[in-house]
């Protein structure tokens, strides 16, 4: 069965997604829709399953049940002749290459310079020529405000600078979707702003983004849709101005009173 994707197809679509770790149910049937060009924020207390949901989207975790589609394609499986065929390593890697991910702990390659961090994916996965990859990397580093840092190693940069390199590294793959897993949680308070500014800029450029965050200000300002997860289920979702200012459920009221 071929999948016809169009502008109307959501970028991410989850229907009843479940995931357990060693018998503990982390996701208990999650529904979620992320439209193209929109910014979606996932909020909720720690352990609510928001990071797990994000990691399922690029198949860093394998969901156990339910249907999860990215750009119209099932994540990790192919539906043919009435059966679900598990995708092999090569196909999964090809899918992941089109989804950018930014981690809480940056996870920059410590043994590579900033420039090499941003070119390695282009050269080794997308098979871009070295010089072209370097040109693109320098453009992206300039875009995240790090022109001139090409030769530095990650350990020589501040957390905020490292996270901006990580964003450039993900963007170098020319992704159709960007996932952010608590991108500012490991940063000193005064460095949070520089990373959020880069993300706001990216949102304005029309990138489809799914952001797990505790930054309610960012969610209110940038997100098109906010999902509130608690104990593996979506408690509430919708326009951030409504959800964050006039929460309906007691749980979200309780959560917001603690984080705001």
């Amino acid at each position: 069965m071929s999948v016809v994707t169009s502008e109307a197809t959501p970028m991410v679509e989850a229907r009843g997604v479940c995931k357990s770790f060693a018998g503990v149910e982390v996701l208990k049937g999650v529904d979620l829709v992320v439209k193209r060009g929109e910014v979606t924020c996932l909020i909720g207390p720690s352990g609510s399953g928001k990071s797990t949901l994000l990691r399922c989207i690029n198949h860093l975790e394998k969901h156990d049940a339910g249907e999860l589609r990215v750009d119209g394609h099932l994540v990790g499986y192919e539906f043919r002749d009435g059966k679900l065929y598990e995708r092999n390593d090569k196909q999964i890697c090809a899918e992941r290459a089109k989804i950018g991910m930014v981690f809480q702990r940056f996870n920059l390659f410590q043994h590579l310079t900033v420039l090499d961090n941003v070119t390695i994916g282009q050269v080794k996965v997308r098979r871009v020529a070295n010089d072209q990859a370097a040109v693109r990397a320098k453009e992206l580093l300039a875009r995240v405000g790090l022109a001139g840092k090409e030769g530095a190693y990650p350990s020589q940069l501040s957390g905020g600078q490292q996270q901006r390199v990580a964003i450039a590294r993900a963007l170098a793959m020319e992704p159709k979707l960007m996932l952010f897993d608590e991108p500012t949680s490991a940063l000193d308070p005064e460095l949070v702003g520089e990373v959020l500014d880069v993300m706001k800029d990216l949102a304005r450029s029309g990138m489809t983004m799914v952001v797990v965050t505790h930054e309610m200000g960012f969610a209110r300002e940038v997100a098109d849709t906010v999902y509130f997860l608690d104990h593996g289920v979506i408690e509430e979702s919708g326009d951030p101005r409504e959800v964050l200012t006039a929460p309906r459920s007691e749980r979200l009221k309780g959560f917001l009173s603690k984080v705001l």
């Binding site: 860093l60 899918e95 992941r96 290459a97 989804i99 991910m101 390659f109």
Partner: peptide
């Protein structure tokens, strides 16, 4: 995290 980052780039 290094392995996850490499995977997320499609390596």
């Amino acid at each position: 995290g290094q392995i996850e980052a490499a995977s997320s780039l499609g390596m």
